[in-house]
Design a protein around this nucleic acid. Structure first.
Length: 595
RNA sequence: GGUUCCGUAGCUCAGUUGGAUAGAGCAACUGCCUUCUAAGCAGUAGGUCUUUGGUUCGAAUCCAAACGGAAUCACCA
């Protein structure tokens, strides 16, 4: 909340108290709707009973009180249908602009002295990344950026899921059909190469099932007894027993995939402080199961499998260790939770994982609580919705996915086409051009995926592709380049980008609105922090860019003769540019200087 | 079937503690580049906020029910 709002609220509180003997602690002030004159609106309806007066009358009295007691702040007021609309002096807006412009910590909230661990990406090493992973990675990275700006110490982690039956499937298919090909020999990116064999496994598996069914076996039995599936299970067992040849193959193929992922991450512009691998954490999980069993948190069934009863929590019985003693998904997550706590001792731990795993995390957090560990508290599942295609859900096995690398490349290519069509980048070196296409293509993609509330599922239509006009990343980036252009020209002409002006100058409506918006940035930042929601920042960036363009079109900046007015407009442009630059950086988007 | 989430313009989405005539973008139509970058700006048109009840000065927002959609309920991860 800005100091202006605080002053107004305090003054209204005082007014309510002295005029009507009403003591109200939390009263809210809202922005006046555009159709009406004024900056802030106070709604008086809730106080009609206590005051024993009509709304309009209360508003009127209160308005007079404000003018009398805050003459330097409140310029005028209007009462419309019982709403008290308050207009402020332009000098107040001018003062706010100066304060914002001189605030050295305008984009950083006060330090919280608190660590937060955020886990995101969490890929499986049996196939390449797809569109859903892009949403995950952009979200995780952006939330980390936002929390940092919010004053937290943030540690970014990635838990690589590198073991399990699904990994063995691609390994087996490679063994059977691979003929020793490698990323180097095939010219394929490592993750794509391995993904090819994951699909090959599924194809062979389905063919075997079909054959079994054709020879009289029933479908369920065929699924369980298909030879290739039995082979995969045998391979998992061999892996768990550490059989050298299997381990060797596993290490080789994993390294291919991880190399491929590293390239994708680089292209995405995301990074991690620490990468965990489930192959290293599942044993720790088993230890926790032993402990829990000793404490009576878990119990063992006759067949040897270990369970937890969460019926009191409104959930079910849940398996935590198989009868053969091998770990399941949740066992590994328990281990990783402990490891992360040992490494960083953070108070809060955020998991960025899709909402199809809501139930899993509910169970995990209940288990951790029952184990009563130091890391039992402060866990939060940042659950986001699926990215849908018009044709329905994406399925890796069936090849109905939008590949992450392909999509990013397409976006960059589109950015190139668009830019060359417009013909505005004369004098760019090839390197500069390519960098720009990257920034624009990725900006469009990131904005597209981040502008939607994370909780909601969203639709991606490859046919219509991603736009570069309107509510898009490039629109915001474009606004930034306009401002950069003004900066360059102001420098040429020797105009300062900020400075003192006559505070009693009359402002245009578009200037007031722009100042108002700039003044709300920190509030938005705090809100985005609380809700772990980049979409709040994205929305704000768009509103700000939109408002700036309106101002830019209505008023001249560099050609303004009056020096006081020109300086104010330059200050506005400069601060808008810095704010856009900062806000987009929180989304992982680079704002170029020319485009 | 149980649990959870969702339903706002033709399409994609905003709308945080209940507030005025529900907002953007895309698509359609109309204007604006010899003047700071037209990836822009201004405007027209487009709505039973799924439906029905309830709570109250006041509901897209809160409550209940119905309808429609999604996820999940594995000794997969």
């Amino acid at each position: 909340m800005s100091s202006i709002q605080v002053q107004l609220i305090e003054s209204i509180q005082a007014g309510l108290s002295s005029l009507f003997q009403i003591d109200e602690k939390d009263l809210s002030l809202q922005e006046t709707k555009k159709e009406f004159e004024g900056a802030y609106t106070f709604v008086v309806f809730p106080y009609t009973k206590k005051a024993g007066k009509a709304p309009a009358q209360i508003a009127q009295t209160l308005g007079d009180y404000l003018i009398e007691n805050k003459p330097q702040l409140v310029k005028a007021y209007q009462v419309v249908q019982g709403f008290l609309n308050i207009s402020l002096h332009d000098s107040v807006w001018y003062g706010l602009l100066q304060d914002l412009s001189n605030d050295s910590s305008a984009f950083q909230l006060a330090p919280k002295n608190e660590k937060i661990v955020i886990e995101y990406s969490s890929p499986n090493t049996n196939k390449p990344l797809h569109l859903g992973h892009l949403r995950n990675n952009f979200l995780g990275y952006s939330v980390a950026q936002i929390l940092k700006a919010g004053g937290y110490e943030v540690i970014k982690t990635n838990l690589v899921n590198d073991r399990g039956i699904h990994i063995c499937k691609s390994m087996l298919a490679y063994q059977l059909f691979g003929n020793g090909e490698t990323p180097a020999s095939s010219g394929m990116k490592g993750d794509h190469l391995v993904g090819k064999y994951y699909v090959a496994f599924d194809k062979a598996y389905k063919a075997e099932i079909e054959q079994l069914v054709a020879t009289g076996s029933d479908a369920e039995k065929a699924k369980a007894e298909a030879p290739i599936m039995l082979q995969a299970q045998a391979m998992l067992l061999a892996w768990e027993q550490g059989e050298p040849a299997v381990i060797q193959l596993w290490e080789t193929m994993n390294s291919w995939v991880l190399e491929g992922f590293a390239a994708s991450y680089k292209q995405m512009g995301v990074d991690f402080d620490k990468i965990y691998r489930e192959s290293n954490t599942y044993l720790l999980g088993k230890k926790l199961v032993d402990e829990g069993l000793a404490q009576g948190v878990f119990y063992q069934k006759p067949d040897g499998s270990i369970w937890i009863n969460l019926e009191e929590e409104g959930l079910d019985e849940k398996l935590v260790l198989r009868k053969d003693g091998t770990s399941v998904y949740i066992t590994q997550d328990m281990g990783t939770a402990q490891l992360k706590y040992e490494d960083f001792g953070a108070k809060q731990s955020i998991y960025v994982v899709g909402n199809e795993q809501d139930y899993h995390f509910e169970v995990l957090f209940h288990i951790l609580k029952k184990l009563n560990k130091a890391f039992s508290q402060g866990n939060y599942h940042l659950s986001y919705g699926m990215v849908d295609l018009p044709s329905g859900k994406m399925k890796s096995r069936e090849g109905t996915v939008v590949d992450a690398d392909d999509l990013m490349q397409e976006m960059v290519d589109t950015a190139r086409e668009r830019t060359l069509e417009l013909g505005k980048i004369e004098g760019f070196s090839e390197e500069e051009s390519n960098q720009l296409f990257q920034q624009l293509g990725m900006g469009a993609l990131k904005y597209f995926l981040l502008k939607v509330d994370p909780k909601k599922r969203m639709l991606f239509n490859p046919e219509e592709s991603i736009d570069f006009q309107g509510n898009t990343g490039p629109f915001i980036q474009y606004t930034h380049t306009r401002i950069c252009s003004i900066r360059r020209k102001a420098l040429e002409k020797g105009f300062p980008m900020s400075g003192k002006s006559d505070p009693n100058i009359t402002l245009a409506e578009s200037e007031r609105e722009l100042i108002y918006l700039l003044g709300t940035y920190k509030t938005k930042l705090a809100e985005a922090c609380e809700n772990f929601s980049p979409s709040i920042i994205a929305q704000y960036s768009f509103d700000l860019a939109k408002q700036f363009n309106k101002f830019y079109n209505e008023l001249t900046i560099l050609n303004e003769e009056n020096e006081d007015i020109r300086t104010i407009r330059l200050t506005l442009a400069d601060l808008t540019g810095k704010t856009i630059q900062h806000a987009t950086s929180l989304l992982g988007i680079v704002s170029p200087e020319r485009m």
